[in-house]
Each structure stands twice: as structure tokens, then as C-alpha cells.
């Protein structure tokens, strides 16, 4: 347990001693809840259309595929046409792209980033490393199967998929969103304990709250 997370006695300005427990005092420990869409189907479809039309990718290149995502924003591939845009903070992002192998360390950060995104949110895995570990199938520090840890909506094959493949993948994702099947966030909320157990089983030094708001 890191020293800054340990329980400690602190003396207030008026001399009263009290205990500060960082995990409880600094972090909100409420679990995620399942969020139902709008009650009227037509409204939910319209929202889904809007969500598909403005896919904001979180700028977090986790693996070797991130280099492939840069060209998307250049004139040659121009993802803006599809309403896709980079957002620097997970708060404003809807799409988390796990581009390639995911080491345990990066998984820990990816989980924290994913949990700070707002429902509905989507995860896209690139390459076989996210499906079954790929060429790192026997490595001691990369995870072998992404959807055990994060609810994945779409995989794009290719080691690593070229920008055209990415655009095609995003088009499929849009179809999923418009069809309303991209409810990874709710799935994460429902089977939250299962996901959390898997994550903690792999990440040994879990010094974060269970759900990072």
C-alpha cells in the first residue's frame, strides 16, 4: 500500500486530531448503475443516430495500433467526415480504442480511463492481441482476452489494421450503435463484480477505488 494512501492521523488548525482515510475521503466509491435509454423508441433511435454520427475517440494510444490512428485525422483519410473526433479527456470521449497488445500496467490505466467515460461508451479492440493474446500468447505481462476485463463492442482484425480498416471498423460500430446493440456500459454495470474480480485477479497492486468516477 503506497504511503500516501495509508490511513493517517491529522491535526486540524483548531488542534483537533482526526483520522484521514484517503480511499474513503478522496474517492467516490459508488458502483456504476445500469442506465436505460429514453423510454420512447423513436427518441432512443434518434439519440443512437446522433451518437453514431459523433464518435469522440479518447486520445489514449494503448498499444502499437495507436500509430495507425493518427493518419485518420490527416487529409488522406479524414475521419472528420464521419463525425469522428479526438477528445483529450475521457469525460468527453465515447469510444476507447485498445490498439494492440494490452500490458497489465496499461490495462490498469485503460480501466480507469474507461470508467471515467460516460454511459453509453464503446470499446473497440484492434488486432488479434486483444482477442486471444496474438503473438504475445505466452507473455507474462500482457492480457490475453480483452473482453474479460472490458466490455468490447467490436474487434478490427489486422496486425495492425490500416486506417482504411479502421474507418471500415468504425462504420460497423456505427451500425451497431444505430441498432442499439452497443450497450457495453450497461453490460459493465450489470456484471460489474465479475469484471472487477477478473481485473483484480490480474492487477495485483490495485490501489484505486473499485469504480473510478
Amino acid at each position: 500500500m503506497k504511503p500516501e494512501l495509508m490511513k493517517r492521523m491529522v491535526k486540524g488548525p483548531d488542534g483537533v486530531e482526526f483520522e484521514v482515510e484517503p480511499m474513503r475521503d478522496y474517492y467516490c466509491d459508488a458502483p456504476p448503475t445500469v442506465q436505460h435509454g429514453a423510454y420512447i423508441k423513436i427518441v432512443e433511435d434518434f439519440f443512437n443516430w446522433a451518437r453514431s454520427q459523433s464518435l469522440w475517440i479518447l486520445g489514449f494510444g494503448t498499444g502499437c495500433g495507436a500509430i495507425e490512428m493518427r493518419p485518420l485525422m490527416t487529409p488522406r483519410f479524414d475521419a472528420y467526415r464521419y463525425g469522428i473526433q479526438w477528445r483529450p479527456t475521457p469525460r468527453q470521449a465515447n469510444l476507447l480504442v485498445i490498439s494492440g497488445y494490452l500490458s497489465v500496467k496499461t490495462l490498469k490505466r485503460a480501466i480507469r480511463a474507461y470508467e471515467q467515460m460516460q454511459n453509453p461508451k464503446y470499446v473497440v479492440g484492434l488486432g488479434s492481441c486483444t482477442i486471444n493474446g496474438g503473438m504475445y500468447w505466452d507473455s507474462y505481462n500482457t492480457i490475453k482476452c480483452l473482453d474479460q476485463y472490458l466490455p468490447v463492442d467490436l474487434y478490427i482484425t489486422g496486425c495492425m489494421p490500416r486506417p482504411e480498416a479502421l474507418l471500415a471498423g468504425f462504420e460497423d460500430l456505427k451500425k451497431l450503435i444505430r441498432a442499439g446493440q452497443a450497450e457495453g456500459a450497461n453490460q459493465y454495470a450489470e456484471r460489474f463484480d465479475w469484471y472487477k474480480a477478473n481485473q483484480k485477479q490480474v492487477i495485483h497492486d490495485w490501489d484505486m477505488p473499485d469504480y473510478n468516477w
Partner: peptide
């Protein structure tokens, strides 16, 4: 580049309002 569709802002707005 072709740039964003003209109604992109509407989509972003509705999406953000639509976030649950």
C-alpha cells in the same frame, strides 16, 4: 480534406444531451 458534415454540431449537441 472534406471536413465535417454541415450538421455535425447538431449531432454532437444531441449526443451530449443524450448521454445518460
Amino acid at each position: 480534406r472534406r471536413g465535417v458534415p454541415i450538421w455535425q454540431n447538431y449531432a454532437d449537441l444531441v449526443k451530449n444531451f443524450g448521454l445518460r
